[in-house]
């Protein structure tokens, strides 16, 4: 409601003015050469999945342009793994030839035949173990008169000293059951309240002004080198069984990210704004999306996680 009143006041003010119109205009956009685009999210003990494409004019409708005759070369911990041809007919190409371990340094060089070359360096951060997890049920009364029940969950971890660490607490709800002797499975991402100070970092200005939801991302700015317990309230709605479910598993993933993944993710959230409300509305300055591809665009990053789960049976 608080955000909506800002939004409504803006909208109402504009509607009150009602004295506006819009029309197509022609501005000659500078001819920018298409840039090579690469994405890969690398996990320990997993195969390599790679996206390779090209940027294109903002006025084009498709989101990306495929690249013909592209190749990539990969090095893991300084050891060249060879050069491979990238298929042009898939969004993501999978390379089971490569597996990764925590701490690996990865260098990928990709190039278009007789075209540009891009280079990216990343690494696989080591997993940060969840040391302890406790749960209890609590009831909260909210200002709109609604009583809400939560599964209060405490997750403890120890942040390594002497390095900047980037994290995300990501919670998944999985439901298991049977329909006509066939397995039944549901998977949802839990949208939990990010009230713990670790998600807010420093003294924020205006906690009643609803800020952007950074989806559980945080840094070690407040907890560098110490053991910290995150308090998370999982709405009890996620604990209700649906008709076919006989088991629910709530998994808490503590992701350990690179700076690049963290920054890319945050810049995407900022760019989108409140459910996309101000995305593309030029009264706000446009945001630049973080990029770690040298000579091109995109993101290649390693990540690792530790997971702890709660299992409930009907």
């Amino acid at each position: 409601m608080r955000w909506s009143i800002i939004k409504y006041s803006l909208i109402v003010s504009f509607l009150l003015l009602m004295l506006s119109c819009e029309k197509d205009i022609l501005i000659e956009l500078n001819d920018q050469p298409d840039k090579l685009v690469m994405y890969s999210f690398i996990y320990p003990d997993s195969a390599l999945s790679l996206h390779f494409s090209k940027s294109q004019s903002i006025l084009s409708v498709p989101s990306y342009k495929q690249v013909e005759n592209a190749r990539f070369r990969i090095s893991i911990n300084g050891v060249n793994q060879g050069t491979y041809i990238l298929p042009s007919d898939t969004v993501w190409s999978n390379w089971k030839e490569f597996t990764f371990s925590k701490g690996d340094d990865i260098v990928i060089e990709a190039f278009e035949r007789e075209g540009d070359t891009i280079l990216v360096e990343s690494y696989l951060p080591g997993e940060i173990p969840i040391e302890k997890m406790d749960t209890s049920t609590i009831n909260y009364s909210y200002t709109d008169g609604i009583q809400m029940s939560y599964l209060k969950t405490k997750v403890s971890f120890s942040d390594p000293l002497a390095e900047e660490d980037y994290y995300q607490l990501y919670i998944i709800r999985e439901g298991y059951g049977m329909i006509n002797n066939e397995p039944y499975y549901t998977r949802d991402v839990v949208d939990y309240d990010k009230d713990d100070p670790i998600f807010l970092q420093k003294d924020q200005s205006g906690s009643l002004l609803q800020g952007l939801n950074f989806q559980g991302l945080f840094t070690d700015e407040l907890v560098n080198g110490i053991t910290y317990t995150i308090n998370v309230n999982i709405p009890k709605d996620y604990l209700f069984f649906d008709y076919y479910e006989d088991k629910i598993k709530i998994s808490l993933y503590l992701y350990h990210h690179t700076y690049d993944y963290y920054s890319y993710f945050r810049s995407k959230v900022i760019s989108a704004g409140y459910d996309g409300f101000y995305e593309g509305l030029p009264i706000f300055d446009p945001n630049q999306i973080h990029n770690n591809i040298d000579g091109g665009l995109g993101l290649v990053s390693g990540m690792s996680f530790d997971v702890d789960s709660i299992v409930l049976y009907q």
Partner: peptide, 14 residues
């Protein structure tokens, strides 16, 4: 002036 592919992130909530 240009746009480029943006995949879903593996850990995005929304």
């Amino acid at each position: 002036e240009t746009k480029y592919y943006a995949p879903d992130l593996p850990t995005q909530e929304n």
